[in-house]
Amino acid sequence: MPDEPSSQFTHFFGKLEPKQKYGQTLALAPIALAVLSGCHGPQSALNPAGKGSAPIVDLTVWLTIGAAIVWFSVIGFAVYAIRLNPSAHNRRRARRLIIGGGAVVPTIVLTVMLSYGLSMMPEQLAPAPDGSQRIHVSGEQWWWRFEYELPSGEFVETANEIWLPLDEPVEFLLNSPDVIHSFWIPSLGRKLDMLPGTETRLALHPLKEGYYRGVCAEFCGESHSLMAFDVKVVPRRDFDAWLERQRSDAVIRSLEQEGARTFTRNGCGACHTVRGTFADGSIGPDLTHFGSRESIGAGLFKNRKDNLEGWLRKTDTLKPGVNMPHYAMLSNAEIGAIADYLLSLK
């Protein structure tokens, strides 16, 4: 049993099947491979899977083409002026170049570009229609608290992983209790800052089923780099089933009673909630359905027993500055029992 997770982010490998296929065919072009695989990665803005992100990819392509044309024309011209220019040109004609190249052409190009780009704004900023699924998000140093608002007004809390219904608008209500964070699921759409004291609202509309990753984009302190979350876009039926599961209290199997007791004895419940038990702390992530999640530590490791045990022993070194203390003083048996217990909370 490794005493700490052997490699951070290991769960990434399992998620990227298409990439591995490219890997075999493009073995001779590692850079092209990296770029291609990255483009198709779960965290890529160039892998559009939402109503908001797809037009921005088109925009990116057009802007890049336009920029390349402008650059090559200007540089071509400069090379001509510096190296090939056979004889000095007339100054009056050169002055016309300033007006044409410096003022007229850029004005036209920029106007066209602005009309194209800004015409997207209404759609980008449109609020989600009434009746959309609302998810309250709180960015905290350095993890994500998610609360699904049910039509009944009830809230279902979870952490570091969200499921979204396919092809339906979702509204995120973003808050921060501490510093400024920024909520970003590159594949689904734009990012939006989470400001202490002011709620910001973001509407996303996923169009492709699959696994994606969200991250914090605004520097938020020591472990800013280690603040990610998992996103699953699934058909409505699966979504409903998942949400119903998340809503229910934890079921503790008799096998895990010992782990549950160890969990309680060591005070874990002061910070974490496991609904249906005495653990009702609200400082850290809700663990009611911890075992059902893809990763631990806010997108840090694949949710496996060995990783979890390592996390419990070395929390503070794996995530510098984290509020949770490490539990290295516990025996292997105790750590194992807690891990088994948590993983059983499906």
Partner: peptide, 19 residues
Amino acid sequence: LIGMPRRVFTYPAGAGFDI
């Protein structure tokens, strides 16, 4: 563009950032 935020002290392997 493939999703690497600035000001990160490290990044995950296999997300396309490595090379």
